[in-house]
C-alpha cells in the first residue's frame, strides 16, 4: 500500500509537470535522517523520483501553498491538509484553478521526531473520522474504511473543562510559563498568514515585549481566537512547539464550541460562510440581553 501511493503520486507528478500544467510540485521527500519525511519542492520532471508518501508524512503542506501563491502548483495533501486548502480558497488566499491538489486517502500518520519513527498514530489521527480528501483533482491510495470512533473526539477538552477553576488556572499557568514566544506555532499554522502579525506590531503595542506569563497568555488566547472556526485540527502548532505546550487543547475547545453552537466544521466546503463572518439575527447564544 505504501509503495502504491508513492508510485501513484510520482506518476501523476511526472505527468502534470512535463505537460507544463504546473510549475511546482509540493510534496514529501525522505529527510536527511533517512527515516522521517520533509517537504519537497520539485520543479523538474527528472526529480520526481524523490517524492514519497508514507505514514511519516506529517507536515501540512497547505502552509507552503501560501508562500507560493499565484504560481500554478500541485500539492500533495492528506485529508486534513485538503481542509486547510479549502479554508485558504474560502479566504481567497490561493486560487483553486491554479492549484492542482493530489489528494491522498490518508491512513493516518505516526508520531515522528528527528531520526525516530514511532508505531503509534498521532492523536489527531486517532480521533480522525474523515480520511478522504475534501478537495482534489486526483486521488491516490485506496479509500480508508471509516470506523465509528467509540469515544468523544473532544474528550480531552471535556476532562479539562470538568476541573475546578483553580486547577484550570494552574494547568495553563504551568504550560504558559514554559512558552519562549518563538512563534513556531504561528509560523507552522497553515491558517496564519497575516503579513504583519498583531502580536509583533510595535505601534500600537498590543502585546508587550516581556517574556512573562501575561503577555504569553494574551498571545496564546489571540492566536487561538484567530483560529476559531478556522482551525482544521492538523496540529502542526503543537507538533512544532519546542516546549510541548498542548496547543491543541485550546484549538479543540474552539472547534468544539463552534461545532456545538453553529454546527460548522471548517474546510469541508469553501462555499459555506465561516461562522464568525456571518450571523443569524434571532439566535440565542446565551449572551446579550
Amino acid at each position: 500500500m505504501t509503495v502504491n501511493i508513492t508510485e501513484q503520486i510520482q506518476e501523476k507528478a511526472r505527468e502534470i509537470l512535463s505537460s507544463g500544467q504546473v510549475e511546482l510540485i509540493i510534496g514529501y521527500q525522505r529527510a536527511s535522517d533517512g527515516v522521517t519525511a520533509r517537504p519537497a519542492f520539485i520543479r523538474k520532471a527528472e526529480n520526481v523520483a524523490k517524492l514519497i508518501f508514507d505514514q511519516t508524512c506529517t507536515h501540512n503542506l497547505a502552509k507552503y501553498a501560501i508562500e507560493h501563491r499565484g504560481k500554478s502548483m500541485a500539492i500533495v495533501a492528506k485529508a486534513c491538509d485538503t481542509f486547510g486548502i479549502n479554508v485558504l480558497i474560502q479566504e481567497n488566499q490561493i486560487i483553486r484553478e491554479k492549484t492542482y491538489v493530489i489528494g491522498v486517502n490518508c491512513p493516518g500518520v505516526v508520531e515522528v521526531s528527528f531520526g525516530q519513527v514511532g508505531d503509534k498514530l498521532q492523536y489527531r489521527c486517532q480521533i480522525c473520522q474523515e480520511h478522504a480528501p475534501a478537495v482534489y483533482d486526483y486521488v491516490a491510495g485506496d479509500p480508508v474504511e471509516e470506523k465509528p470512533l467509540g469515544f468523544d473526539p473532544y474528550i480531552k477538552v471535556k476532562v479539562l473543562e470538568a476541573l475546578s477553576q483553580e486547577e484550570r488556572i494552574a494547568f495553563w499557568e504551568k504550560h504558559f510559563e514554559r512558552c519562549i514566544r518563538c512563534y513556531a506555532c504561528r509560523n507552522a499554522c497553515p491558517q496564519c498568514y497575516c503579513t504583519e502579525c498583531v502580536v509583533e506590531q510595535i505601534d500600537p503595542d498590543w502585546v508587550g515585549i516581556p517574556i512573562q506569563v501575561p503577555e504569553k497568555q494574551i498571545f496564546h488566547v489571540i492566536r487561538a481566537f484567530h483560529l476559531a472556526g478556522r482551525c482544521i485540527g492538523c496540529n502542526e502548532c503543537e507538533r512544532s512547539c519546542p516546549v510541548g505546550i498542548p496547543l491543541s487543547l485550546m484549538n479543540m475547545k474552539f472547534s468544539q464550541d463552534v461545532e456545538d453552537q453553529f454546527g460548522y466544521k471548517p474546510g469541508r466546503d469553501p462555499e459555506v460562510c465561516a461562522p464568525l463572518a456571518t450571523y443569524q439575527p434571532d439566535e440565542n447564544l446565551g449572551i446579550g440581553g
Binding site: Q165, R168, V221, D257, L276, I287
Partner: peptide, 30 residues
C-alpha cells in the same frame, strides 16, 4: 455589527472561562 459581536463574544466568553476567567467577568448587553 452587534450580530457579529454576539457570535464573537459568545465564543470568547466560553474560552476565557476555560482558561480560568469566570464567565461573569465578561458581559455583552444591549
Amino acid at each position: 455589527g452587534n450580530y457579529f459581536a454576539r457570535r464573537r463574544f459568545a465564543l470568547l466568553r466560553q474560552f476565557l472561562d476555560y482558561l480560568g476567567i469566570e464567565k461573569e467577568r465578561l458581559r455583552l448587553e444591549w
